[in-house]
Design a protein around this nucleic acid. Structure first.
Lengths: 149, 149
DNA sequence: CTCGTTATTGCATGTTGTGGCGATAGCATC
DNA sequence: GATGCTATCGCCACAACATGCAATAACGAG
């Protein structure tokens, strides 16, 4: 188990190393992120920041997220509807499955997606960025439901 | 080779069968689509409609696209940036690869993606909708470029 | 503690879509 | 050709981001 806390406490230094600054607005967002795990949408993050600081400006949040992504603290992807989704501290590389029928979402880890990643790498030399992908389709339960109709 | 023209000339009847209507605005969009192949973004379609009819309203275009999707004439997906992309008359089911580094895009046909589709179906019973997926990663050329640096 | 440099912020504005609502206009019927 | 039902349109407002720009404020230096 990784000590997630240390990643966040060092953000300030990581920023300074690159000549970037530690501002109240960034502190607010890092605060929110450190209490978040899994996935969040951009607008969700804006809302949570506003709970701490009602003055929060959306563009500032989005721009800070870009910076944090460069530091490797978050990764962004797009959900089935195309909206931004952020993976916080992606300990394990994973992708997502989304059911068009019931709207459910599941994670697929690298191991399970191995054959996809492997086959594309073999045939094209294409390195899949699993964390950025949302695979859409129909889940087992919904397929059964349709079949029974 | 399928005769694409027939698909479009029958749109009117297909609409009528469902109690839907054939309007000038729909005619404009179908006109544009019949001269399009491959992929287009929503805003691109709005623009092209405006070239024919400058009065074109975006919401009408988007709503018509929804209707045409129900008829199976287009399929929508999301590009790497999350924007809507429409596949016109998807003769062959296919997905997309997008390189984060050079911005290039390639198509993957069902056959090539077979192992992905197959493995997820086997392990989870999840039926992948290939046409809706954009897989992001790094292409062979860009990987070589990075490796040589 | 004061300064000066310049990274960031906040604001205004633009883009891509979505959804409600009253007015319009297809089209089947007479 | 006139009529009525209701699908569709146009418009407006809003959601989720992105971006240019002038004003602000980190923070290293003195």
């Amino acid at each position: 188990m990784i000590d997630a806390a240390s990643d966040w406490t060092q953000v300030r230094e990581r920023l300074h190393e690159r000549g970037l600054r530690w501002t109240p607005q960034r502190r607010t967002l890092v605060d929110v992120l450190s209490r978040t795990d899994g996935h969040v949408t951009g607008s969700e993050l804006v809302e949570r920041c506003r709970e701490i600081d009602p003055e929060t400006t959306p563009s500032t949040v989005y721009r800070t997220l870009d910076v944090l992504e460069e530091l490797g603290l978050v990764r962004h992807g797009h959900g089935a509807d195309g909206r931004e989704e952020f993976h916080v501290l992606p300990a394990v590389e994973h992708g997502h499955l989304h059911c068009q029928s019931c709207g459910g979402t599941w994670e697929v880890e690298a191991a399970e997606a191995g054959s996809l990643v492997g086959s594309l790498e073999a045939s094209r030399g294409f390195a899949v960025d699993l964390s950025h992908v949302t695979i859409v389709g129909t889940c087992a339960a919904c397929r059964r439901a349709v079949a029974e109709t």
